[in-house]
Amino acid sequence: MDNTIGKPIVEISGLNFWYGPKQALFGINLAIQPNRTTAFIGPSGCGKSTLLRCLNRMNDLNDEQRIEGTITMHGMNIRHPDVDVIELRKRVGMVFQKSNPFPKSIFDNVAYGLRIQGSKKNHLEDRVESSLRRAALWEEVKDRLQESALSLSGGQQQRLCIARTIAVEPDVVLMDEPCSALDPTATAKIEELIQDLKRYYTIIIVTHNMQQATRCSDFTGFFYLGRLVEFDSTNRIFTNPANKQTEDYITGRFG
């Protein structure tokens, strides 16, 4: 795996974030490489999910938030007031911790984002199929596309959510602990999928599971109490961390 540093797709610099009076992120500086998987690890409440939600401006939905610093994507500041947040969210997809398929058919779930963008009907079927194939779900659901998405198993639902996200062809896919509610078999499938998907997308994954970070990420950032303690190639973080806190965390001494 070539982990040399190239031109980053997302750059975060001097990012501070507050929920009301409480500061959740402190001066985060970070560069995300394109077509690589970056993992954010750290104990609960360390701000890794908050940072993830800054990247598609999901935090905008929260009234009490305040943010400072810049986040650029392809060199453009996504926090600029002129940026169309709707467009941003099409380019930066998100898969949530708890699988949240719409109570619609499997087909309609994947087609949702495309329909929002006004895709033509014949185009729609191709895109739904290719997205389900990429999400490694097509073989399991191709005969039951009109059935409710809620009839799928937990792991299948999460892969459906991935299919739904990649259907709109984002550049970046954010995953917020996508396997935390899944059993080991379903988790293995999603991890395999993540390996495949980085050919097409840049993936940022928040995880509590350190094995998961080692198995499927190229870069890892360790967060603690709202600060980015260490960021490096996953290999280095897990074999030869520079920071004592990182070492303590990955060896299970706290967290």
Binding site: R89, Y112, Q117, R164, T165, V168
Partner: peptide
């Protein structure tokens, strides 16, 4: 209606109005 459904819709690039009407 679960917050997760609204977030899923918004994260796919739906506006608030589209989310309310469709989800």
């Amino acid at each position: 209606v679960p917050k997760g459904l609204r977030e899923a819709s918004m994260a796919l690039g739906a506006t608030k109005l589209e989310t309310i009407l469709k989800i």
